[in-house]
């Protein structure tokens, strides 16, 4: 059961939940929740790919030298990329939330199909 790709597949199932919310839900906040879920899944996938079994965090101290790190630590490169990606995700979330607030102010509803109908 716990095969070598089952964690990846579970993670992609989480991403699939986000895709489902994005396609099937009509509420704008639900769509935003879908995008946020997809973002979590992608960040988590990058970190999972860089995990080394039994690995330690990539931080040196008095006991752990640089050669030790190279032999035992997890991959620091995806961590550096995900670190920036998380903060960018917060910025885009704020942008989406402000768009949703403006849409509600104009159309007095969060329903996507209702908004389409009102505009037409």
């Amino acid at each position: 059961m716990l095969s070598h790709t089952s964690l990846y597949i579970l993670d992609m199932a989480l991403m699939g939940m986000g895709v489902y919310a994005l396609i099937a839900k009509r509420h704008i906040i639900k769509k935003i929740i879908g995008v946020v879920t997809m973002e979590y899944a992608i960040n988590l996938f990058l970190i999972l790919v860089g995990y080394r079994a039994g690995g330690i965090a990539p931080i040196e101290d008095a006991q752990i030298s640089a050669a030790d790190l190279a032999a035992r630590a997890v991959d620091p490169l995806p961590q550096a990329l995900v670190l920036t990606s998380i903060v960018i995700g917060l910025g885009t979330l704020a942008l989406m939330a402000s768009l949703a607030i403006k849409l509600y102010e104009k159309y007095k509803t969060f329903d996507m199909s209702e908004i389409n109908r009102l505009r037409g």
Partner: peptide
């Protein structure tokens, strides 16, 4: 994902250099 490296064994080609050389 059947072609991906197994979980727990990353490639770490560039990262080896980062890990070994960062403090120096």
């Amino acid at each position: 994902f059947s072609d991906l490296t197994p979980f727990g064994e990353p490639l770490m080609v560039v990262s080896q250099r980062y890990l070994a050389g960062s403090s120096a």
